[in-house]
């Protein structure tokens, strides 16, 4: 059984949202419907976000912990690697070490946020740009695309057309 990508362009989020709902009603799994736009439309995104929650927050936290531990390890291990005479003063003073750890915690969280975001958005991803994208979104269009088997193709096409979509080549 062969499958085909259907791309329909919609004007405005209301029509696009209606199209997504109709597709779901017709039995298309939400994760197989892609909505592309030139600006975020959270009213369309929300159901998907609920089904596939982001883990960026947890990764930021973990990145912060790793960064903080790495900062502490850097200060502790490097300070102890040389027998410096400190006149009974601590070699690794908590307050000054805390400043370095504070900064490395932040950099760990920042880098982890970036990496996780790229992972969850499948970026960089130039390949898909060629197969599944249309620059029309940049002028305000909203593209709803879905994969349809040869059996469902006509049915889904008529659903998307009825919702106000215009099929794209």
């Amino acid at each position: 059984m062969t499958s085909k990508h259907l791309h329909f362009s919609f004007e405005g989020p209301d029509r696009a949202r209606r199209a997504v709902r109709e597709l779901e009603r017709a039995g298309v799994v939400r994760s197989r419907v892609t909505v592309m736009s030139g600006e975020p439309f959270l009213e369309i995104d929300d159901p998907l976000a609920a089904a596939h929650p982001s883990h960026i927050g947890w990764f930021s936290l973990a990145g912060g912990v790793v960064g903080g531990l790495a900062g502490f390890a850097l200060v502790y291990l490097s300070s102890h690697s040389y027998p410096l005479v400190t006149g009974a003063m601590p070699i690794v003073p908590p307050m000054t070490t805390g400043i370095v750890v504070y900064e490395t915690t932040a950099i760990g969280a920042i880098v982890a946020t970036l990496l996780r975001m790229l992972w969850e958005t499948a970026l960089p991803g130039w390949k898909k740009l060629r197969s599944d994208y249309d620059a029309e979104i940049e002028d305000g269009g909203i593209i709803v695309s879905t994969e349809a088997s040869s059996e469902d193709e006509n049915k889904l096409r008529s659903i998307l057309s009825a919702a106000g979509g215009r099929e794209m080549a």
Binding site: T34, V35, M36, S37, G38, E39, P40, F41, L42, I44, D45, L48, A49, H52, S54, I56, G57, S60, G64, A106, A109, I110, T113, L114, R116, M117, L118, E120, T121, L123, P124, G125, W126, K127, K128, L129, D132, Y133, I137
Partner: peptide, 23 residues
């Protein structure tokens, strides 16, 4: 980076920017 403006991408971008703003 091959940005297509899918709903997942928008959602994750806004999330990441919000976290970055706090950090």
């Amino acid at each position: 980076l091959g940005w297509r403006g899918t709903e997942t991408q928008w959602h994750r971008l806004e999330k990441a920017v919000s976290i970055m703003a706090i950090v």
